[in-house]
């Protein structure tokens, strides 16, 4: 019949009238963004190596930085990094090219601001970064950290191949076996011996001998007790 479609159409809109809205309720409810959503560019100053790949790859000249040559290490030093975001077209070329992943997009899309100038983001060299560099050039601390590294390496070697390492401080094969068994059961002993071996070999030998003697005595005691127990049975 003519006009049936009209009634049907009215019915459809009537049904939709009472259905829940399907639109995004943005300011009230934040939208669900895809993981690779391109919102606002973020920059991590400390990771950047000032290679300039991002600056060269940007088609819109959004990015720029200032560098300086460090007198001591002769390395390029990043002084400031500027993202003039108003020209960005979100092509992601900068983030793709960065070898250190220190420029990337986050999920913040609320970029409006009252003034054009506010869109520009300037990152200055953080003061802590320079301080940390000074610390690392300081002699004593550097040595200390070197020692620590050596100790760590020694400990690893001890774990891997105790016989070979311990042969430097102990002469008898039996003692070596006893000590390596002891170290396996007690990590503290291993740590102490490794530390001493790096710092002072003679002292290490003495301490190692002491440990061995103590272990020998202990073993003797338990052996005799065990025999007595057997006799009682």
């Amino acid at each position: 019949m003519n006009g049936q479609g009209l009634i049907k159409g009215l019915g459809i809109t009537f049904k939709h009238f009472f259905q829940k809205e399907i639109t995004e309720q943005y300011p009230d409810v934040m939208p669900q963004l895809a993981p690779r959503f391109r919102g606002c560019l973020q920059f991590e100053f400390e990771k950047c190596i000032a290679c300039g790949i991002c600056v060269n790859s940007c088609p819109n000249n959004v990015l720029s930085f200032e560098t300086e040559k460090d007198e001591n290490s002769k390395k390029k030093k990043l002084l400031s990094y500027t993202i003039d975001f108003q020209h960005c077209m979100f092509c992601n070329l900068c983030a793709e090219g960065c070898p250190k992943q220190c420029i990337y997009f986050d999920h913040n899309f609320e970029l409006s601001s009252f003034k054009r100038e506010d869109i520009k983001m300037v990152y200055l060299r953080p003061a802590e970064m320079d301080m940390r560099e000074e610390e690392s050039t300081n002699g004593q601390e550097q040595q200390e950290s070197k020692e620590q590294k050596q100790i760590d390496a020694m400990q690893k070697a001890l774990q891997k191949n105790p016989g070979k390492v311990l042969s430097k401080i102990l002469e008898q094969e039996e003692d070596i076996i006893i000590l390596s068994e002891l170290m396996q059961s007690d990590e503290k002993t291993a740590g102490k011996i490794a530390e001493l071996m790096v710092k002072d070999k003679e002292k290490a030998a003495k301490v190692a001998a002491g440990f061995v003697n103590k272990a020998k005595k202990n073993r003797a005691k338990t052996e005799t007790a065990g025999e007595g127990g057997d006799a009682n049975d």
Binding site: T13, H16, F17, F18, E21
Partner: peptide
């Protein structure tokens, strides 16, 4: 408002 409801908007 009514047109919005018909189109499932607010």
């Amino acid at each position: 408002k009514v047109s919005a409801f018909f189109q499932e908007r607010l």
